[in-house]
């Protein structure tokens, strides 16, 4: 199984440890993973700001890098959702379509394709789980409190396989953290208030870590936590699933 590792630009630049954990985890689970060296960004920041027209260059570059893999996997629900919904390449429409159909968020890939039943990991800590909206409501990684459908959660199912972990949910288990791409600077006041409110609910559960499937949400929460000098840390779900016994 040939897996193309898609590492969103801000993870590449700021959170290499998340990418490393993702790579190691996939390798441990027997995937043949490569990281196409000329990848940059999925184009979401432009598109979500109303400049979808400007993301054509990113799209083309993406298709060039990720053609020919069985699967494309990324540790980010948000970027995967963008690719799934918007990747177009007029020069290579077939390839673009193939990628749209074969791109997976990490936990979705582990659950639905690799059908992981068991994970050799240990993380003896109190951890709060944050649902990223794009992963949850966009990719349906878990059920949503608004809809009246049976409950499930792919990321939590995986986390529950980790030894020693004490997993908790905030009271509002799927409220947005307020990152929202450029929203986080153009609507700074609301964005930060939303983040603060999420953190408050995790603090009630006395968590040591807040985890989730999207580094962007975590980066935003981390920024607020650090500013207030909190001891609570953020950690990506790949890092927990990859933590050694």
């Amino acid at each position: 199984m040939r897996v193309g590792l898609f590492i969103p630009c801000y993870i590449d630049q700021f959170y290499p440890q998340v990418a490393i954990a993702t790579l190691q985890l996939l390798e441990k689970l027997g995937c043949n993973v490569s990281f196409p060296l000329q990848q940059t960004c999925c184009g979401q920041p432009m598109a979500n700001s109303g400049f979808a027209g400007l993301s054509k260059g990113c799209d083309k570059n993406f298709v060039k890098n990720f053609s020919g893999f069985d699967y494309v996997v990324a540790p980010s629900g948000s970027c995967v959702l963008h690719i799934k919904e918007h990747l177009e390449d007029q020069g290579h429409p077939k390839e673009a379509e193939r990628i749209r159909n074969n791109v997976y968020e990490l936990t979705e890939f582990l659950t639905d394709i690799l059908k992981v039943q068991h994970i050799n990991a240990s993380f003896p800590h109190s951890v709060g789980f944050h649902n990223s909206c794009h992963g949850q409501r966009g990719l349906h990684l878990s059920s949503m409190t608004e809809t009246m459908l049976p409950a499930f959660s792919k990321p939590e199912q995986l986390l529950n396989m980790v030894k020693g972990i004490q997993l908790s949910n905030p009271e509002r288990r799927d409220e947005c953290c307020g990152f929202g791409g450029t929203f986080c600077v153009f609507e700074e006041a609301v964005s930060v208030k939303m983040g603060k409110d999420r953190i408050k609910e995790h603090e009630v559960n006395a968590v040591e870590y807040i985890t989730g499937g999207d580094v962007s949400c975590l980066m935003h929460l981390e920024g607020i936590l650090k500013r207030k000098g909190s001891s609570v840390k953020t950690i990506h779900i790949a890092e927990i699933l990859n933590s050694e016994l």
Partner: peptide, 28 residues
């Protein structure tokens, strides 16, 4: 993306910036 704004960086007003790692993932 999220740091393009204006002279006053709106991210930093109430949030710390992420720490800069020594190398990118690609380098690693």
């Amino acid at each position: 993306p999220f740091m393009i704004n204006n002279k006053l960086n709106a991210w930093y007003k109430q949030r710390e910036m992420p720490e800069v790692p020594k190398q990118s993932f690609r380098d690693w």
